[in-house]
Amino acid sequence: MTDPERDLVRHTAALARLELDEAEVDRLAPQFAAILRHFRVLESVEVDDAEPMTGASGVRDVLRADEVRPSLAPDAVLGNAPRSSDGFYVVPKTVGGEE
């Protein structure tokens, strides 16, 4: 199917690791398209004299001293892991080589 809306939804879903089935794509694609269409009004705003606003508190230069504090007990963290063994998180076999 070469519906660009559906392709965009599929591509974006893949980036976001959402494994949408066809029924979901059917449901989400028109909603997604409608939202984008509606939001396209932003294109009409004159923004040339505005700097991007990336934060709201305006604080700067927040640093902490390089001091070690106790870590959590491994059980406290691993206790929430769906799968763990011998102190490790366990995930499906994968090859190495990420950044």
Binding site: R64, R69, S71, L72, P74, V77, G87, F88, Y89
Partner: peptide, 22 residues
Amino acid sequence: NSKLFCSCEVRFGAPPNSLTCP
């Protein structure tokens, strides 16, 4: 001494997941 964004110790060869926090 500690990690870039938390206070966990930086140490090589510690038992797995013993130097972690939220």
